[in-house]
Write a protein that binds this DNA or RNA. Structure first.
Lengths: 221, 221
DNA sequence: ATTACTAAGACCCGAGTAG
DNA sequence: TCTACTCGGGTCTTAGTAA
């Protein structure tokens, strides 16, 4: 993540406050200007800058604009949240709820790469069972997932083999029903609502989880 | 809390990150300038401004400055933390640990005022036992206490009687050992490490708490 | 080394106004 | 009304430099 402009952050936070849960909001530059204590002209300029940077998107209809914050824009806010929490040393265990879904076996392929496995043992303290548990996160936990995506986590180096490149990933230690596990995410933000979980245990069997089973994951951020 | 200047917040966060847990830090304007990506001159100017606003204090020795963030400065950071958490709708229950101490009976006097009691019933949903449980918060939970101080909480109006004025306070619902309670703080920041707890129950007796007893309080922020 | 003043240039803001 | 351009004025930044 490249460094954030404080004013971009500030403006996005203000817009997000106005939006609440709405993905789109009708917001004139005058109204935004009032919230930010700047003129309509400045607000207009600021909006254009944020659109240019990819943090906002806009639809104009009948001379009135509707605004939406992009994923990149939300990243700014959640990144700041994590940054501030870390500066203030507010440690956090989050509960994230979701449902077990069946993966495509890709996860198993990835995590069985030797370079990953060595690092899992060194940095997470366990050798994972050769397969991942795929958890589709409940929509109402989307914010928590975004926080996770914007957290640093435990860095796992990428590597290259003869045929292809395996990117760097990050891991978050946690537990499911008291059993040790870790959530694995690519280091470059991918906006998926599925989390891949690894564990020294075969969670599916040990916890008798079938597809669709509702589970609660605790992760340390 | 009057509105925050984004740059003040940004600078204080940067300084706090450098400080970690140290109350004082030797930090030249050049070093700060690098962290903020501004010149030494600008960093110097920014420091003077923050001192002028009461967010920083400084000792200069042999032409090198030592900086410390004041309580007012920390308030900026914790306020922002709460604001951002509320904008992102990250709900939060905090566990705060401390020890029971004996109060001066003042709490009992305050909360037995009729205007307060009516509001407690209306806004908290219970009529408190006529006395407060005073909890001295563990130093390592100071950050959580600061967060509480900078949260809005449930507003309880102040009022005046013939003899004196009772200020507005704010309440945070929570529980101790599963028993319903609320932490009460004056609305104007007072930097005390003692929390006053009210509850429909006589907590001291019900939980058999003697002075010095270690307790764990869960509060909703 | 420091901190911080001065001065000049860069940048930002908002009034006026067009579309 | 709306958005957003131009441009004059003011603020902020930094190079030079003193202490």
């Amino acid at each position: 993540m490249k460094s954030i402009d404080p004013y971009d952050y500030w403006t996005l936070k203000t817009i997000k406050r106005i939006m609440g849960k709405n993905p789109w909001i009708s917001l004139s530059s005058r109204e935004l200007g009032e919230k930010l204590s700047v003129s309509q002209q400045s607000a207009s300029r600021i909006i254009l800058k944020l659109i240019d940077k990819g943090f906002l998107q806009r639809k104009i209809k009948d001379r009135r604009q509707n605004l939406s914050i992009t994923d990149a824009g939300l990243d700014i806010l959640f990144y700041e949240m994590n940054d501030l929490a870390s500066v203030l040393e507010i440690e956090k265990t989050m509960e994230i709820r979701g449902n077990v879904i069946s993966g495509l076996g890709e996860g198993r392929y990835y995590i069985s790469r030797k370079s990953y496995i060595i690092q899992f043992q060194e940095k997470l303290g366990f050798i994972p069972f050769l397969g991942t548990l795929n958890v589709k996160i409940d929509p109402e936990n989307e914010g928590k997932l975004r926080r996770l995506r914007n957290s640093t986590g435990i860095h796992i180096d990428g590597f290259v083999t003869d045929d292809r490149t395996f990117g760097p990933v990050k891991a978050f230690l946690g537990s499911i029903e008291g059993l040790q596990c870790a959530a694995i995410l690519p280091e470059r933000s991918v906006y998926s609502d599925v989390l891949e979980i690894i564990s020294p245990f075969y969670l599916r069997e040990k916890l008798k989880l079938s597809d669709g089973a509702s589970i609660s994951l605790f992760v340390n951020i």
